[in-house]
């Protein structure tokens, strides 16, 4: 035992065998539920958006550098891989945006009933789909 905190994680199975108790929420043991799944999605999309900022910085720096550099960014973003990355970025952005607002509502002290949690979770998923489709619809048809 390297860390005294590990003493808190010592438990026994029903047969009396000593085990290291899992720290909640242990992904391999806990049954996936909409609450835990949406929570981990919020973290994953946040990390994905952090990667996405690299594209934003590349795009801005290229625009400020030269027409050639900017043409390179435009070319890469217009490949199917580029479009796929942008689509993924849109999904991550709208999910993190909606789930973030859900968190702010919780922080304000509302929506803690289990039924409300399930409803708001479903609403976040629905809003993500609608906003993503709407964003690309406007992008392709209107712009």
């Amino acid at each position: 035992m390297k860390d005294v905190r590990e003493a808190l994680f010592v438990g026994t199975t029903t047969s009396g065998k000593p085990v290291r108790r899992p720290i909640s929420p242990h992904l391999q043991i806990y049954k996936p539920q909409i609450t835990s799944v949406l929570s981990i999605f919020h973290r994953i999309t946040g990390c994905a958006l952090a990667v996405g900022t690299l594209v934003l910085v590349w795009w801005l720096v290229a625009a400020a550098t030269s027409d050639v550099a900017f043409a390179t960014v435009s070319m890469v973003l217009h490949t199917w891989v580029g479009h796929l990355a942008l689509f993924g970025w849109t999904v991550a952005l709208w999910y993190h945006f909606c789930a973030g607002i859900r968190h702010l509502v919780w922080d304000a002290g509302y929506g803690y009933e289990l039924s409300s949690v399930h409803t708001s979770g479903a609403a976040v998923l629905a809003a993500t789909v609608v906003l993503t489709v709407l964003t690309w619809f406007i992008g392709i048809i209107v712009v």
């Binding site: 900022t53 690299l54 934003l56 910085v57 801005l60 720096v61 625009a63 400020a64």
Partner: peptide, 8 residues
């Protein structure tokens, strides 16, 4: 990254 974006 933030500084690069701001400078740009």
């Amino acid at each position: 990254l933030a500084i690069a974006a701001i400078i740009a």
